[in-house]
Amino acid sequence: MSQLETEVRDPLTRMIRGLPTVLTSDRQATLALWSAKTLMVAYRAPQFGPRPRPEVILPADPERLYRDRTLGPTMLMALANYQPTSYAREPFSIQTFERMEHDTGQYSYCATLKIGHFVAQLVRLPDGTYPPTRQPPPHLILLQPGGSSVRWPPPAPVHAGAEWKAFAHLPERTGT
Rank of each mutant, 00 (worst) to 15 (best):
R151Q: 12
A111S: 14
I94G: 06
A111L: 07
L76H: 08
T174N: 13
G105V: 01
A162M: 06
Y66V: 09
A156R: 14
Q83Y: 00
Q144A: 15
Y82M: 13
K37Y: 00
V150S: 07
R67W: 02
P11Y: 04
R27Q: 14
Q83C: 02
P73Y: 03
V119D: 14
S25A: 10
V56G: 11
R9V: 02
H117E: 06
T104Y: 01
E7N: 09
Y66D: 13
L33Q: 12
D26H: 12
V56M: 11
H102M: 09
Y130I: 07
W34S: 06
E5Y: 08
L33I: 00
R64S: 04
L4I: 05
F97A: 10
H102G: 02
Y130H: 14
P132H: 07
K114N: 10
T112N: 14
L58H: 14
P131R: 11
T6S: 12
I57K: 13
Q28I: 03
T104K: 08
T24H: 13
L12G: 02
L39W: 05
P84V: 00
T176G: 11
D61G: 01
G18I: 00
L65R: 15
A120K: 07
Y107K: 05
P136N: 10
G161R: 09
L76K: 13
G72K: 09
S148E: 15
P153A: 07
